[in-house]
């Protein structure tokens, strides 16, 4: 009688232990998958940000070339310092930039996805000087941020 009860109870304990082990293993697997998915999403977001950042750089360098060309072509006709403001206004108009007459600067902001680049040039006759070259990134602080936000907030 004792032997029968022992055999039966051993079977029950084994089943319960197996069940607990399986549940623990499943939880570990799901956590592992969530972490991996999160890491993958974060890496892809980093890749997209870098690509957007360098796209802005390309646009800004092209703009720089057009500003230089405008300065050279118009500076040769008006070499006096007083002509800088009209040159600056022309550059701002033709390249869709903004011109600040008081500081004699043209600036333009390039936006690509969440990344923006603001370039500011000060004009000196037919030459220019890069005053600032700032890259900024905007973060979407929406309400649905969770612990594994990488998976849920993929853009």
């Amino acid at each position: 009688m004792m032997h029968e009860r022992s055999l039966s109870s051993h079977g029950g304990i084994l089943s319960v232990l197996t069940l607990i082990s399986v549940v623990c293993l499943a939880v570990l697997a799901v956590l592992s998958l969530t972490y991996a998915h999160d890491a993958s999403t974060a890496a892809q977001r980093q890749r997209d940000t870098v690509v957007a950042s360098y796209q802005n750089e390309t646009d800004a360098q092209t703009w720089l070339a057009s500003v230089d060309a405008s300065l050279k072509s118009q500076g040769s006709s008006s070499s006096a310092e007083g002509g800088s403001s009209s040159v600056g206004e022309t550059i701002a108009r033709t390249t869709d930039a903004t011109y600040a007459a008081d500081s004699n600067r043209v600036s333009k902001t390039f936006v690509n996805g969440p990344v923006s680049l603001t370039a500011s040039l000060s004009l000196h006759g037919s030459t220019y000087q890069i005053e600032s070259w700032n890259t900024a990134s905007t973060t979407d602080t929406n309400e649905h941020v969770t612990l594994w936000s990488g998976a849920n907030n993929a853009q």
Binding site: A29, S32, L33, A36, A39, S40
Partner: peptide
């Protein structure tokens, strides 16, 4: 299967 998928995702992220 879950662990294999995790490993694949991690490799891709790396």
């Amino acid at each position: 299967q879950l662990f294999a998928q995790s490993a694949s995702d991690c490799r891709s992220a790396h």
